[in-house]
């Protein structure tokens, strides 16, 4: 990659920031909804220094990952069961088709009256949202395992549990990891959405509070930070996927 190819993609965001800054300064307007980039950076540094931003990030990520773990396990177990047994898969078809299209935020009021505000309600909604990508991809991955591997398992007289542990999961692992990567992105999105909509917790609540306090610099700092968190999570999982599975992961993505 030449020097100019490295610079070109950076030009647009840089120019936008400069124009934005200059326009805010020249107009000199006191705004309740906008702040110049320099003020946003200051607010970001301030919120980082006093620990409020990191505490909010911890709350959001904790809920997102707890939900991901819970929903991911349910999705994985169901996905393996559905992928292994054609009968079970066909019997459950209508039930799954009926539940899956319910948008996760629609469960928010149910979780609210059943669990109240706080972590538990957020975790429950995130878990519901994470079940589906894991279930669908795992089911497809397990269903498309090389049949000869299953035959080998039968010849070796492996028990059902050993068969899943030693043959099915390793064979489907690259695509299962891909499913978890997708689900992790969804978990963060759902967690932030729940916090913005109703739950007084984490980054979503932080950005809502900043807006209501008419602190546009802090609000936009939160927005930038949420973007950074999403980007970092995605980049981290992509790197993990590449180093763990290499080419296998790439092939899984195309399938």
């Amino acid at each position: 990659m030449t020097m100019s190819e490295r610079i070109k993609p950076v030009l647009l965001p840089l120019a936008a920031l400069l124009v934005f800054e200059a326009w805010m300064r020249l107009a000199g307007a006191q705004s309740d909804s906008l702040a110049p980039p320099s003020a946003i950076v200051l607010a970001l540094a301030g919120a980082l220094a006093d620990g409020s931003l990191l505490a909010a990030t911890r709350d959001t990520l904790a809920s997102a990952f707890a939900g991901l773990a819970l929903g991911g396990i349910i999705g994985l177990v169901l996905g393996i069961a559905l992928g292994l047994s054609n009968i079970f898969n066909r019997l459950m078809e209508v039930t799954i088709e009926a539940i899956r299209p319910i948008p996760s935020v629609a469960l928010l009021p149910i979780a609210l009256i059943a669990l109240g505000f706080g972590y538990r309600m957020e975790i429950a909604i995130v878990a519901f949202a994470c079940i589906w990508p894991v279930l669908i991809v795992t089911r497809a991955a397990v269903g498309s395992i090389e049949p000869r591997l299953i035959e080998v398992a039968r010849v070796l007289r492996l028990t059902q549990l050993d068969r899943i542990r030693k043959i099915v999961i390793p064979a489907a692992l690259p695509r299962i990891f891909l499913a978890y990567r997708l689900a992790a992105g969804i978990a963060l999105i759902v967690a932030v959405t729940v916090e913005i909509a109703i739950n007084p917790l984490g980054l979503g609540a932080g950005i809502m509070t900043a807006q209501q306090a008419l602190r546009p610099d802090l609000m936009l700092a939160y927005l930038v930070w949420i973007g950074v968190t999403g980007f970092a999570l995605n980049a981290l999982l992509m790197a993990a996927q590449r180093s763990l599975f290499g080419r296998a992961a790439v092939i899984g993505e195309q399938a």
Binding site: V192, M219, L223, G227
Partner: peptide, 11 residues
């Protein structure tokens, strides 16, 4: 792309 779009709601 990875920005949770609901974060745009307060703005």
């Amino acid at each position: 792309r990875p920005l949770p779009v609901s974060a745009i709601i307060p703005v």
